[in-house]
Design a protein around this nucleic acid. Structure first.
Length: 165
DNA sequence: AGGCTGATTGTTCCC
DNA sequence: GGGAACAATCAGCCT
């Protein structure tokens, strides 16, 4: 079955626009539609389309970092609201309401996550070369790629408190 | 019983 | 350079 099942949740039935947000229409895609499963456009080879065991997930953008915190607050003030879309809309509006200075701490954190993500991607891309040579053999499982965790991975909390200029 | 959907924006990746 | 996809969330609805 396709991921694009006939879910009834989708309101594509009619032009039932909940709220005509002009901004949203600008870059609005037809939902996220997880076509990556079937139509792997990002994947050059169908062969590579297979699952990526160590494919690093993308770090949360500044908006997401803000959203995580926003969700907590939103739920406290709106415990009845369980719709994720509600928080998304509310968060989106609030996000735009924030100024660069307010978004700064969120962007800073997002930047940190990105740096870490780049490292993961480097290792990931590197692995891709290895796997590329190999057909589809998941030899990595045979190999003990279990890197010791003794490294200092707790480098978080490097919060540079933005002092007033 | 499990899996995908929605909605937000940003960021990232592949071609 | 651009376009398309995906990142969290969580209850709800469908297969």
């Amino acid at each position: 079955m396709k991921v694009t099942r006939g879910k009834g949740a989708v309101k594509k039935d009619k032009n039932e626009v909940v709220k005509p947000v002009e901004d949203r229409a600008a870059g609005k895609r037809k939902a996220v539609l997880k076509a990556s499963k079937s139509s792997n456009k990002r994947t050059k080879n169908v062969k590579s389309a297979k699952k990526d065991p160590n494919k690093p997930k993308r770090p949360p953008s500044a908006f997401f970092v803000f959203l995580e915190e926003f969700r907590k607050v939103y739920k406290q003030e709106h415990p009845n609201v369980k719709a994720v879309s509600a928080v998304g809309k509310a968060g989106g509006e609030k996000w735009k309401s924030l100024t660069d200075a307010e978004k700064a701490p969120f962007e800073a954190k997002a930047a940190k996550r990105k740096l870490d993500y780049e490292k993961l991607m480097t290792a990931y891309n590197k692995k891709q070369e290895s796997t590329e040579d190999e057909d589809e053999e998941e030899s990595e499982k045979s190999k003990s790629e279990v890197h010791d965790d003794d490294d200092d991975e707790e480098l978080e909390e490097e919060d540079e408190e933005e002092d007033d200029d």
